[in-house]
Each structure stands twice: as structure tokens, then as C-alpha cells.
Design a protein around this nucleic acid. Sequence first.
DNA 1: CGGGCTTACGGTGTGCGTAAATATC
DNA 2: GATATTTACGCACACCGTAAGCCCG
Lengths: 97, 97
Amino acid sequence: MTLTQLRVFVAVARHEHMTRAAESLHLAQSAASAAITALEAEHGVQLFDRVGRCIRLSAVGHAFLPDACAVLEGADRASAKLRGVDRKTRLDARETC
Amino acid sequence: MTLTQLRVFVAVARHEHMTRAAESLHLAQSAASAAITALEAEHGVQLFDRVGRCIRLSAVGHAFLPDACAVLEGADRASAKLRGVDRKTRLDARETC
DNA sequence: CGGGCTTACGGTGTGCGTAAATATC
DNA sequence: GATATTTACGCACACCGTAAGCCCG
């Protein structure tokens, strides 16, 4: 499982539309489809119900969405903090090894 | 930033020893070193102070460690939940699209 | 037919391991 | 000289985009 796969999953879940989700991530549809397929295969789970042209969250996918969002938010927050804390503690690097 | 890089970071931070950290992750030292370098370069930050053969967390790295752990725990928890919830809701897949 | 997801396919990039170089004790 | 990290290098795998295939309105 990668952060990229989670991002794709959340985007598709929100848009309920693979093409739009892919566009919102500046990705080709095939890449988004592959990411979802890989995520599903890795866990042996079906995240979406493909009924006709309609692609909607399955029960499992619905249960997973909040967790995926939480992980992504945590990662983004950590990344931002890492950049932000940079300048603050840059001159504080006195170490006693 | 990838989950793999975070895993390497946490392992090195815990072991304070690149070789042991790499072994604990079943990786070559070079791979671990590259992961840390990439993580540092991506954020323009120095996570570790390399003084002699001693490699220890810098101030920035110390501040980042809890966040990295939180992200990893969240990801692992989400992954485990996804596997665990599988059997429970597998037969509940009746959808009305 | 038309829109939408999937599969096939080729290219590029990234990550990994082996091995050599560098540095410290 | 031994131990530990970094750098160099080559390879394999994975990701992405283009394009064709398939299915449902």
C-alpha cells in the first residue's frame, strides 16, 4: 500500500467517477484504474462496486474511506511541519555526540 | 515522501545505526542511506547529524519522529482493518445503483 | 454510436543490491 | 586495519501514458 494509491482511492470515492478523479490528480484513467486494482488485490478486497457505468463505494470501501483520509492528512501534515520547522530550528543544530 | 522512506527513517532513528536499521528492514545499507538522503533532499532538511561513525537524530529529525510514527501506525492500522473487515462484510454487498 | 472502465503494450524512471571509495577510531 | 557510511554502477521492477478492447445506456 502506498500513499499514491490512497490518494487515488479517496479521489475516486469522492468523485464517484474514475475519469474525473484521474483528471483531478493529473493522471490517466488507466493509471487510476491500476492503482485501485492494485490496492484491492493487495488486500483481497473489493473497494468499489462496478455496476454498469456507475462506480460506487462498496461497503468495505465506505468503511475504509475515513481511515485513508486520516492517513493522508497525517502524511501531509507531517510533511508540511517538516518544511515549516526547518527554518525555525536550523540554527539550533548544536549537538553533543 | 513515501511510507517506505518513513519506515527507514524510524528504523534508523530507533537504532541510531544505519547498518542495523537496514538489516531490521531486510535492506542493504545503500538502500537505507538513499532513502534517508531522498527524504532529506525532498524537504530541504537534515534529519540526522553524521558526526564521525555516529549517526544521531538532529533537532529537526527529533521533532519529526513522532509524526512519522503516527503516519506509519495509521497506515498499518488502516491496512489491517481493511483485511479484517473483509470477511465481515463480504456477504453484505447488496447494492442499489 | 457514445461515454466510461479495463486491458495490452512500450518507455521511462526509480529502487535495490553488489562493489568500490571515503572516513573515523 | 577494522568498522561504518556514502557513492558508483548495473539491473530489474513498477509506474505512467497511449491506444485498443469491451460493456453498458
